[in-house]
């Protein structure tokens, strides 16, 4: 079992400004799979991703990647590890001052000594894989949201990483672009033999493409399972999430004193 686990998270805690964000996360991400981490906005999904990438230092617990302990690594060790990771940011985070081609070529130029001809071939191959070879001369400003996301995907995969992380890959996309990205994530993961972790709140798309789902709420894992288990789950939280119900274990109202109390107490604002 342990050989097949690429990322092993044990009792991970993270506190930001005295506010606990993650409170004891346990997760095992098997090699070669696509795993989704789901939950409402602000439940610590992105924080978890940052901890795996070593961009945030957890206040407790451990993150193991292969045989490396990510927490407590030096900057140089982290950078060495990150060369084998790819990350797709929420809105792509393409470098706005470079063309599509240069964006995808960026990691290769920074980390390899490949010749320009070699880089050219590799970049066009990566762009072909996301169907944007014809767009290599465009600047990021000229791309639609879905195209930018695909270019960013090509860039994240530029160095054939063993682990790819997706931070909200479906946000702000139209249904067609959303389906395209979803299929690409699945297809490229299998083609490259990589492992993917996807942070998202788009349940319907995720159910179609992932192997395993973790549900997060209030900094804890509240449910987990394969897509079939999730669909069949009777857990109230999962039920609310899958069926997009406005009220349930996740409350519609922000915690507040009762409305009667507030109106009568006359506390001044500001």
């Amino acid at each position: 079992m342990s050989d097949d686990v690429l990322v092993d998270i044990e009792d991970l805690h993270f506190t930001y400004d005295g506010r606990p964000v993650l409170q004891g996360i346990n997760m095992k991400i098997p090699r070669g799979k696509v795993v989704a981490i789901m939950g409402g906005s602000g439940c610590g999904k992105t924080t978890l991703l940052r901890c795996i990438g070593g961009q945030l230092r957890p206040s407790g617990g451990r993150v193991r990647l292969e045989k490396h302990q990510v927490c407590g690594m030096s900057q140089a060790e982290l950078y060495n590890l990150r060369r084998r990771m790819g990350m797709l940011f929420q809105f792509g985070a393409l470098f706005t001052d470079m063309s599509v081609f240069d964006n995808v070529a960026f990691p290769m130029r920074e980390h390899t000594d490949l010749s320009e001809e070699m880089i050219r071939d590799l970049v066009l191959m990566k762009l072909e894989a996301v169907g944007l070879r014809g767009a290599h001369k465009l600047m990021p400003g000229e791309l639609s949201g879905g195209m930018a996301r695909r270019v960013a995907l090509a860039r994240a995969l530029a160095l054939d990483p063993m682990l790819v992380m997706y931070d909200e890959p479906f946000t702000g996309l139209d249904p067609i672009a959303l389906g395209v990205i979803g299929q690409l994530i699945r297809k490229l993961n299998d083609a490259l033999g990589a492992t993917s972790i996807m942070v998202t709140h788009d349940i319907q798309e995720s159910l179609l493409i992932v192997d395993y789902i973790y549900f997060l709420n209030g900094g804890r894992v509240v449910a987990q399972g394969t897509p079939d288990e999730i669909r069949a789950s009777a857990d109230p939280f999962v039920h609310q999430f899958v069926h997009a119900e406005p009220d349930g274990p996740v409350h519609f109202d922000y915690p507040a004193p009762s409305i009667r109390q507030e109106f009568l107490s006359g506390v001044r604002h500001g």
């Binding site: 900057q75 982290l78 060369r83 990350m87 940011f89 985070a93 470098f95 980390h111």
Partner: peptide, 25 residues
């Protein structure tokens, strides 16, 4: 403006995740 926008659009974080130090680059 340039560096601030790169930060706001997560370009600096993306660079850091690509193992390229944004301060050096």
């Amino acid at each position: 403006a340039e560096i601030g926008l790169m930060k706001a659009t997560e370009q600096l974080k993306a660079m850091d995740m690509m193992a390229v130090n944004p301060i050096a680059r």
